[in-house]
Amino acid sequence: MSDTTDPGVGTQAFPSTPKVPSAPSKPIKVPRRSGGGNWLFRLAAAWLIFIISVTILFAIFGDALPLLSDPTLKDASAIKQGPSWEHPFGTATFGQDVLSRVVEGGKISLFVATVVTAIGIFVGGAMGLLAGYYRGWVDTVVRLLVNTTLSIPALLLVIFIVAVRSQSLANVIFAVTLLAIPALARIVRASTLQVADREYVKAAEVLGAKRSSILIREVLPNVMPTLISFAFLTTGIILVAESTLSFLGLSVEAPTITWGSIISEGRISFAETPHMVFLPALVLFLTVLSLNFVGDQLLKRYDIKEAAIG
C-alpha cells in the first residue's frame, strides 16, 4: 500500500498524489488512548461517572446519612411541599420526605437492574457463545427461542408475566430477565460468529485443541468487550423497563418503593407535586444517561459497530 514500493504506473486506477517532501515540522500528535475528545468531553465523562457513583453509594449507604429520614414517616405539617432545605426533593402526598423515598426506591430499582443484567450475562452469554461457536442444532434452537421472544413487544411480555403471576420482587426479576436474556444472547451470538472466523481460532483448531477449551480460552475473552459494553447498556434498559412497570402500577406492590412508583404517585396530583415527578425522573435520567455513556464509550473504544451486530 505504500507509495515508495509501488511505482504507481498503470497499476492504480487513480495515481495517488505525489508526496511533497515536507520540512521537519511539528511532531505528529499521537491521540491518547484513554478516551478521546476535548476537555469538555472529559468533564462530561467525569461528571457522569461521579453521578452514577453517588447514586450507587446513596443506595447502599444512604441510611447512614443525616439528611435522610424514614421514607415512610408521615408528617401532617408538611404535605406536598416543594423542595426546601429540610426536604431537598420536597415532600410526598402524606408528608414523606421524597429524597429518602428516592434513596429507598433506588435500592430496589438498582438491585433489580443489577441482578437481571447478571443473570442475563450468564444465561444469555452462555446461549450466545454455544450457538455462535457450535452452530448446528444448538444454534437453531437458540435462534428460534430468541426470535420468538423478540417478536413479542417486551413490555407486553413483562406486563403479561407479572399480571399472570403475582407482583412480587422475584416475579418482576423473572419477567424482566426474560427480556434481557434473548437480547444479550443475540448480541453475543453475532459477536461469537465474528470471533470464530478469526485466524487464531482456526490455528487452535488446527493444533488440535479441544473445542470446549477453544471456546473458553480463545473465543470467550474476545467476546468479553462486547458483552461488557452491552451489559452497561442493558442495565440502563432494564432500569427503564422496571420503572415503566412500576409507573404502570405493575411492579413490586405498594409498600415497597421504587423510582417508578414515586413518579406515578406524583402524577396523580401533578399540579401540586411536580417535584415528585421531575426530581425522581431526573435521578433516573442521569443514572441511565451515565450507564449509556459508559456503554457507548466502551463500544467506541473496542470499535464494535452496533449496526454490524443484529
Binding site: G236, V240, I263, R267, V277, A281, F285, V288, N292
Partner: peptide, 10 residues
C-alpha cells in the same frame, strides 16, 4: 436516556 413516560408526563 429519557424514559417514554417521563417525556409523556412532562
Amino acid at each position: 436516556s429519557i424514559p417514554v413516560f417521563v417525556i409523556g408526563e412532562t
